[in-house]
Each structure stands twice: as C-alpha cells, then as structure tokens.
Design a protein around this nucleic acid. Structure first.
Lengths: 253, 253
DNA sequence: CGATATTTGTCCGTATGTATA
DNA sequence: GTATACATACGGACAAATATC
C-alpha cells in the first residue's frame, strides 16, 4: 500500500505519450530486486497483492511479471508464487576449471578483462603457496570476469615472473588465461585445491561487481599447477554471491 | 574500556570456587571475536593494553591468549601483535565428507545436535533431488554442528521416510549422521555434489550460529547417496562465514 | 491421506487511446 | 474525417497447481 501514489487510480488507461503501466511496474520491480528489496529466492507478493499495491488490474501485473520472467529475473510457479531467481550462473569448480568453458556450459558469452597489472614482491603466504623463495618477483593481475555484460567475478592473480613475463599482453589480447599459459609453453594445467569462504566485499570489489556492499561475495583461493606439479598461479577470486553458485562434483575417483 | 566492570579490581586472586581469570578472559575474548568485535585478520589490542583493560597482570592476558592460540582463534606474532585468525576451522569438502572426521582432522572436538525434527511432504525440488515421487513423506531434521562449544554450521536435512524411520533417535543418541545411517543398514555413503553460495542469514540462522545478521554465511546444498547410488539425504547447510573455510581438494581422479 | 485456502494460468468480454490506410 | 488494426487496461469467472492444516 505504499507505492500506490505513483499510479493515479483516476487515470486507468496508459498515459498519453509515456510508457505503459506494465513497463513502468516491471522496471520498478527489477530495480527493487537489484537493490535487494526482494532477495534472491524470496517470493514476490502475489499478483493480487501487487495489483492492489500498484492500483492496477491483476492482468497488468501479470504482463510485468511475464516480462521479468523472460528476462530471467524471476521464476513463476503456478500455485506457489513468483520467486526472484536465485542465481544466473552455475559455475563448476573442479580440477580443470576454465572460465570460458564454464560460461559456454551455462550457455553464456563472456570473457576475462585485465583491469590492472604490475610487478610485486611475494609475501610470505604467497611465496609458500607458489613454492618460491620469499620476496620473489611476481606478476600481479587484477582480472574481471563477465558474462552477458554482467560482472561475475573479480580476481587477483599472481604468476612467477621470469617465466610468465609476457603473460599480461596475451591475456589482454585473448581474454583467456588458458591461452596465455599456452603461449608460455603450458599446454595444460590443473587446479590443486580451492579454499572457499563467504565474506562482505570492500567498496572496491563491490563497485567492480556492481553490487551493493551489503551483499556477500564468495571468496575462492586457488593454486594452479602445471603438468609437472609446479605452481604457476596463485589466485584469489571474488564472486558475486547473488549471481553465482559454485557446483563441486564429487563423481570422480 | 567497556567490559572492565566484570572484573573487580579489588580482588586480584582467582575467585574462590569459580573459574580462573584467564579462562574467563579467554572466553570473553572468544565471544568478542565471535560477535565480530574483533574482525578476522584484525590485530587485537596489545597484551599491555588488554592487561590494563581487564585490570589484570600482563601474564594473565598471555595465558588467555595462549589458550586462544591453541584453539586456533588467534595467531601470535612476536614483535608484531596478536591477530584474529581468519578462520578457526578449515573443513574439507569431498566425496566422503564426515562432520566428526573433519573436526578431528582440524584437532577439534564437537558433534551434531538435533534442534528440531518433524515429518514433511517433499516439495517438487526436494523430490527431484531425492529421486522420489512428489509429495513423498520425508523426515526433516534441523541439526547444529559445533566445534569447541562454538556453532559452526546449522543444517536442514531431509531423509526418505519409510526407510529411515528411526534416524532421529539414533542421531540424538550418537550425535552422528554416519552412525545413524549405519544403524539403518547404510554402511557407507558418498556425497554426489555440492552447490555452494554466499548469502546473508535470516534472523533464525544468525541466532543459531551466534553471529551478527550482517555477517555472511556459506550455504552448501548437497545430496548423499548410498553405495547403490540411491539418494538417502538432501541437505542444506549454513556455515558461519567468519569461522569456516571450505577446502575442495582436486587431487583425486 | 483428505479437505480447504492460496496462487498462478487461461479464458471470456468490454472499453479506450494510438497508429495507419 | 472515417475505418481499421493494434496495444493497453479493467472486470470477472473458472481451472490447475501448490500450500496448509
């Protein structure tokens, strides 16, 4: 009963040269979902309730919801209700995790984009993970992973430096870590392990992921090794908690 | 300077029949860490400052900190300070995930505790996950997983009902799902897959995990199957994001 | 398991404003 | 100006799926 005022009940037909009611309501609902007013997985008010709330007929609300459904923002379930879609993407987390492959499997287009690059000295923990001497020189990349123009993850990746000197340029060109490794003679690589936790993003990560700082992120630390078992990458990735679900398959072995 | 009142400065020796100063301070600090007063990675006040704050000798504080360090809650670094460990527990997530085994591996004591139980009808999604007809009767358990008196996870678990009719009683007795399965003729079981995401807890989950509602949780959905591949459990677990890190090892296969 | 309430899906009809021929 | 086609919006009725007790 709060937002009724935006829709004057006196004029029941679409405004003259302006957009239609159902379009306006659809965008309002989409924005509310984006702001977290309706959290992922949560049920929207019933069509009847929304109709009353916006002061329009139930059919008008149905038109709006159908639009949101076709956009993939909500899932309509007969007899149950209309729910905010939990996750846009279901990413596989396994021995051979590849960003492009993951997206292709989900039927999405996207790639990696280098946001920043520089050379750094390894901290104690980083050096240990990469099995290098402390304070070794490393290539540091901040990389954005997108799918369908939506940011999915941002990651900070460290590579041993004499070996992968030209890596940044290749990643920028191809948008692929796999391709960059291949250009440096690493035809194949595997993920040794992944450490996953949930935390709140800092302002920078939240801004890059285009999500509210009050929404959580999945942090995944991982080490990739070449076929000889030599660590070649130590990465920390932050995934948009609302847009990503990580699936671990245990069917191997 | 807020909690000084609980420690009367006039009485400097250990209270008669009550717990010792260092134990009391240790639990207070642990609770403060749990409530997020001291965030993961943050440096605690110096031993000198804590001693002054609690009105005790620095050695008493050292005793408390040593205890917390042995419990894995803090990391003491000479010349630098005492830091809240980012994660108290590193849990393995694999084909054979067992709560007790996980805790034992981390050198912790703990178990499972049935908070609530009832029989429910399967929703469409649950029935699909368990490969059962819709609206099948299921056993529903809400289970708390603790380690060292600290809540680590709370889970909602669904079991097919004619088969596991007596499961609740055995779990209550033994504090172990594995034992309860064994009592029902399931000597071994494996996890088929896990779907992981980050989200904000509702008031109920936050209360059970004794964490602020503004701290994120890791949600893990999983399906366990018996040796014949028949689903026997569909579980959704919420882990305290600040106290748990999930490690996925990809070294199999 | 069954009865009942809730919620979405589909159909009917009516009216009005907009664009086009 | 008139006729036609189309999009939008309202009101009602019932069916189908789901939730609740």
């Amino acid at each position: 009963m709060t937002a009724t005022t935006t829709f004057p009940n006196s004029l029941q037909t679409a405004p003259a040269g302006r957009e239609s009611f159902w379009t306006r309501i659809a965008t309002e609902l989409a924005e509310a979902i984006g702001r977290g007013v309706y959290a992922p997985g949560q049920r929207l008010p019933s069509e009847h309730a929304l109709a009353e709330q916006y002061g329009v007929n139930r059919h008008t609300i149905r038109r709006s919801l159908a639009s949101l459904c076709s956009q993939g923002l909500v899932r309509i379930s007969q007899g149950s209700g209309t729910y905010v879609e939990d996750f846009a993407v279901d990413l596989a987390l396994g021995k051979r995790t590849r960003h492009h492959q993951n997206l292709a499997q989900a039927g999405l287009r996207g790639g990696l984009q280098v946001l920043a690059a520089r050379t750094v000295r390894a901290t104690a923990a980083q050096a240990r993970a990469l099995q290098l001497p402390a304070r070794s020189t490393l290539l540091w990349l901040r990389v954005l992973g997108e799918a369908e123009q939506q940011p999915l993850q941002v990651s900070e990746r460290l590579f041993p430096l004499p070996r992968f000197a030209n890596l940044e340029a290749v990643v920028r060109e191809t948008g692929s870590i796999t391709a960059a490794f291949a250009a440096h003679g690493v035809a194949d690589y595997t993920r040794r392990d992944s450490r996953i936790t949930a935390l709140m993003p800092d302002a920078e990560v939240a801004a890059i992921l285009k999500q509210a700082q009050s929404r959580p992120v999945l942090q995944v630390e991982s080490v990739n090794v070449d076929p000889q078992g030599v660590p070649i990458e130590y990465a920390t990735a932050w995934f948009a908690g609302d847009r990503v679900k990580l699936t671990v398959s245990h069917d191997e072995h």
